[in-house]
Design a binder for these strands. Sequence first.
DNA 1: GTCTATAATTAGATAGAC
DNA 2: GTCTATCTAATTATAGAC
Lengths: 205, 205
Amino acid sequence: MTRDEQKAATRLRILQSALNTFAERGFEGAGIRQIASDAGVKHGLVGYYFKDKDGLWKAAVEFLFERLHEKMQMSPHESELPAHERSKIWLRRYVRYCAQHPAHARIMVQESIRDSGRLRWAVRKFIKPDHELLKQSFERLVADGIALDIPYHSYIYMFTAAAQSPFLLAAEVRQAHGINVTDEAFIEAHADAVHAVFFSHWHPV
Amino acid sequence: MTRDEQKAATRLRILQSALNTFAERGFEGAGIRQIASDAGVKHGLVGYYFKDKDGLWKAAVEFLFERLHEKMQMSPHESELPAHERSKIWLRRYVRYCAQHPAHARIMVQESIRDSGRLRWAVRKFIKPDHELLKQSFERLVADGIALDIPYHSYIYMFTAAAQSPFLLAAEVRQAHGINVTDEAFIEAHADAVHAVFFSHWHPV
DNA sequence: GTCTATAATTAGATAGAC
DNA sequence: GTCTATCTAATTATAGAC
């Protein structure tokens, strides 16, 4: 491994550790010492890579959204499918993403509760652009009679919350219902359930 | 005011302050000094009323669920309405509760992310019993063809998340969409949207 | 009941050794 | 690049004054 690769690897280990810790304990609850220790480095090194706690948080969130965009990308083939097929594929992919990367929703939900400068940064850089795209997709689905004609902001927040919820709250689901939400069977069943609620109004003839 | 009333009033001020602070910053992020100062007392007094931070959190959560149960109670008259009317009333009442008391979802969501001993306590004492009742109601609605026949745990988490979401994430909704979710018009519109998505499958003849 | 004072930890940030 | 040492500030909890 070259020096640059070593450096990138160390940076990434800190970042992954930060993702988990911010997700589990929120910004204020997360400790730089804990994050560093989980990554196998000393706390002083975090400052070298990310300047301060804010910088670390922003880098972690940047990582999350870039990965989300990668994972949600449609292939050229898929992009040409009819709208109801496309949204079905998109939905399953999103539910699967929520199941595999629960830290994303955990970090963003906690920060959206907090109303911080960090949230303002994330809204401008990621949330607003993403919601703008979602709005356009949603409006096409409404025009095609696939999605219900309700206010798009209610739709966006209901849909994403419904898809994320069991994975966001995995600990509660396990304790209250004995369900392991990382089971493949549960993920599939939940994706089906989200589809039934949000898209079953439209039945192709 | 009698001594006992004074005492109860002071306890309540601390409790309210704790609700807001735990909601905004999570358990670890919340500071007893901040809570005490917002309540107009010195931090030492918190220990007198609630022993320690854990005791304060549990008292706050107890307060939340007792208020929820009060507010969601059906009148004898309402209890005799047909199922689809009853669920409609229940839904609007729940959305309104989420709008008026966002601290409830904010505290519980953050704690359900954390997987703590506090969560175990809340699951046993409040969440499991509540979900058991929800399950029974849901199964009746499915039998009557009012609710979709999907796994009840997916239904519970989707429904509650969809109802709570814009109020849970009020800061994000305001920053990203310029919407004040405490507006009466928004609350009504969101309740309509939740109803359309989760109950419009059934049309009375 | 309420506050003051303090003990024991812990936090984030940074300067400097290697 | 990585770590050690340290500074300052903030934390929870509690003992004791009033």
